[in-house]
Amino acid sequence: MSVSIDIAGLRPERVAVVPSPLAELGMALHALSEPGHHPRLQGWATGVTAGLDPHLADRMCEADFLWRTTFSDIFLPYAGVPGGGTLPGATLAEELDLLDKLTDEQFVDAALEFITCSLAYDTQPSGVLSDASVRPRALEAAAYRGPQQVRFTQRLLDDPPGVRGWVRRFLEDCEEAFFADAWSRLCHQLAADARHKTELLRHRGLSEALAAVSPVVTLDEAAGRIVVDKLLEGRTSVQGGGLLLVPTSFGWPHLSVLHRPGWQPVLHYPVGSPDPASPPSVEQLTLRMTALSHPVRMRICRYLARSAYTTSELAQVQGMTAPEISRHLAVLKKAGLVTTRRRGRYVLHQLDVAVVARLGSDFLEGVLR
């Protein structure tokens, strides 16, 4: 399984390595919402959370589905600007101006991907604002996630400019509250990494630069494509435009590939080395590795690492029946890898990231990649 980027016709000067303050803020919000994904940042996350203004903390909870799973493509708006050559801005304000350049259809489509967890990512945009038949399906999908998602989806569909303004004000307040200080410390590291990758591009070529990004990113020169080893299938193309490589410090272990149709491909890659993981007991390792030996359960883990899902939702995204999914979930639960909780009449399942981390950082990075 992999995500591939067709780079036929890609000119060397159209490959850029540039840090993005908006993308880094998106990953900072993700780390605050899912500290279990980022054990190295738990001290930072605890300190920021303790010092947040209560009103800002409430607003953060109001829309955390936009960054809790990983983060929405609205944090990479330059990729959606027509022409395929727009670069990230030097400041958060510049990138928020780029967010304003997205059409309402682009903004809503990108936001709904994470609000509902059901709209297809690698197909053409759904036209939710122009196609009256799509709107009820979006609201129905949001209802599976909870009343908070329903309210936000309704606002998004009724008043995209209003929600866009709300998002901008929220992100500006996050910058003032905690991100400006974090960015002042991180921007030099990210700029240095970008300079290093740019030098590799100039003097050794794209293959060497991609190898320095991650060993799971490879260049198939014969086929004219970049292949990223991930637990999902996806395909995109530079379509005569460019390719962006965006480094992140907050983002480890997530290696994200923006492959939304019509958007410029982006590799959002982590810098820095992971901490060594504590080994599990032999008994735990045997039980858990047996549970994870099936490819379907590996794919289920990828989804459950990012968000809680009902059995029906997993059946939909996996293209399987609910009883089949239930059998795989039973194996994962027996191994202690999955937790469940009830919300009304729904039972939600989620991967226990702390337990999975004890299997080793390689597996954890694999399911979160």
Rank of each mutant, 00 (worst) to 15 (best):
Asp6Pro: 02
Ala23Ser: 10
Glu24His: 03
Met27Asn: 13
His37Phe: 05
Arg40Glu: 12
Gln42Asn: 07
Gln42Leu: 06
Pro54Arg: 06
Leu66Asn: 04
Asp73Cys: 12
Phe75Ser: 11
Pro77Phe: 14
Tyr78Phe: 11
Gly80Met: 14
Val81Asn: 08
Gly85Met: 15
Leu87Asn: 15
Thr91Asp: 03
Glu94Ala: 13
Leu96Thr: 05
Asp97Asn: 05
Asp100Gln: 12
Asp100Met: 09
Asp104Lys: 08
Ser118Gly: 08
Leu119Ile: 03
Tyr121Leu: 06
Arg135Gln: 14
Arg145Tyr: 00
Gly146Glu: 04
Gln154Val: 06
Arg155Tyr: 06
Pro160Gln: 02
Arg168Gly: 13
Glu172Thr: 07
Glu172Lys: 06
Phe179Leu: 15
Ala182Arg: 12
Trp183Arg: 12
Lys197Arg: 12
Lys197Asn: 14
Leu200Cys: 05
Leu201Asp: 06
Ala209Gly: 13
Leu219Thr: 09
Glu221Asp: 11
Arg225Gln: 11
Ile226Asp: 04
Lys230Gly: 01
Glu233Asn: 11
Val238Gln: 01
Ser249Arg: 15
Trp263Ala: 14
Val271Gln: 10
Gly272Pro: 12
Pro280His: 15
Ser281Met: 05
Val282Asn: 07
Thr286Glu: 13
Ser293Glu: 02
Ala305Cys: 13
Tyr309Pro: 01
Thr311Glu: 15
Ala315Lys: 03
Gln316Ala: 11
Gln318Ile: 00
Gln318His: 04
Gly319Asn: 00
Glu324Gln: 08
Lys334Ala: 11
Leu337Ala: 04
Thr339Val: 03
Tyr346Val: 08
Tyr346Met: 09
Arg358Met: 10
Ser361Asp: 05
Gly366Trp: 01
Leu368His: 05
